[in-house]
């Protein structure tokens, strides 16, 4: 080997570069046809005709309705929506937590080694994940339609529909949050003979409490909004009010309802911030 070759080493090649470039190409190749299929043509929003139609539609919403009768109805519906969303999330939490604890890989003792009971453990985890998938795969409005048949019109159906779908969502995301933090602490406890539940509360929950709380509050906010869709199927609350206002083409009432939603989302945000600060 010549002296020059020894003094000038080959330039460092990042072994990850090829894979990253490949992933970028794949992303473009996959996304482009999807955009075409979805008729993604945002420039058409700016067509003069389209703008005029939208403006007319939005103008119908102003000014927001402040009729006392309507505001009383709005207040009652808001409370009902909050009750549906809160009860729904509470039930969803009860559904989600045990399933998430069962499904979380970082709490699986049998994966250490792997040790005894590994096949059974994998089967149970897979089953729990399958249940979570099934619960959330069916949209809440479909569940609501099912429960309205059984319970009749009213908030009860909405609560159950939220509990089922959001139970699936919370469970899946809880599982992923619990698996994505620093899982060494849980593993260390399991390796010292700690039961699964103790490892959950001494290791995983302390390191993920903010994320868990943040996602739960966010889902509560989603549940408030989802009550619109479910109101359309007679599950009560703001959604039902919205449905009536839209059917009567009363834009002012609709915009009052939308402003109420805005306020609720802002409250949810503030609540989330407070909880995260407390858990920090």
């Amino acid at each position: 080997m010549s002296a020059a070759a020894e003094t000038l080493p080959a330039p460092l090649r990042d072994p990850a570069a090829r894979g990253r470039l490949g992933a970028l190409v794949v992303a473009i190749v996959v996304l482009w046809p999807l955009l075409a299929l979805a008729e993604f043509k945002p420039w058409r929003l700016l067509d003069p005709g389209g703008l005029q139609v939208m403006a007319n539609f939005l103008a119908g919403f102003l000014p927001p309705s402040t009729a006392p009768d309507f505001l009383a109805l709005l207040a009652k519906a808001t409370v009902e929506t909050l009750a549906i969303a809160t009860a729904g999330i509470a039930l969803a939490f009860v559904v989600a937590v045990p399933l998430a604890v069962v499904a979380t890989r970082s709490l699986a003792v049998s994966r250490i080694g792997p040790g005894p009971g590994r096949a059974a453990g994998t089967a149970v985890r897979t089953a729990a994940r399958a249940v979570l998938t099934l619960l959330r795969a069916i949209p809440e409005v479909v569940w609501a339609l099912v429960f309205v048949r059984a319970l009749g019109l009213g908030p009860g159906a909405g609560v159950l529909a939220l509990a089922v779908t959001y139970g699936g969502m919370l469970g899946k995301v809880y599982t992923e949050i619990l698996e994505s933090g620093d899982t060494r602490s849980a593993r260390a406890l399991l390796e010292a003979g700690s039961p699964r539940v103790a490892a959950l509360f001494y290791a995983l929950v302390p390191s993920t409490a903010q994320e868990l709380a943040s996602y739960t509050v966010y889902r509560w906010e989603c549940a408030v909004r989802a009550s619109v869709v479910m109101g359309f199927v007679g599950a009560g609350g703001l959604g039902q009010l919205m449905d009536q206002s839209m059917k009567m083409l009363n834009g002012g009432e609709a915009s009052s309802i939308l402003l109420t939603f805005l306020a609720l989302v802002i409250i949810a945000d503030a609540l989330s911030a407070v909880i995260r600060r407390v858990l920090a």
Binding site: D182, S185, R187, A188, E191, A192, S207
Partner: peptide, 21 residues
């Protein structure tokens, strides 16, 4: 195995302890 593990204490080089505890 769980009972046996409870009798084995391990000191880790970087302690696996959540900061919030």
């Amino acid at each position: 195995l769980r009972r046996l593990r409870a009798t084995i204490g391990v000191v880790h080089q970087s302690p696996p302890i959540p900061p919030r505890l």
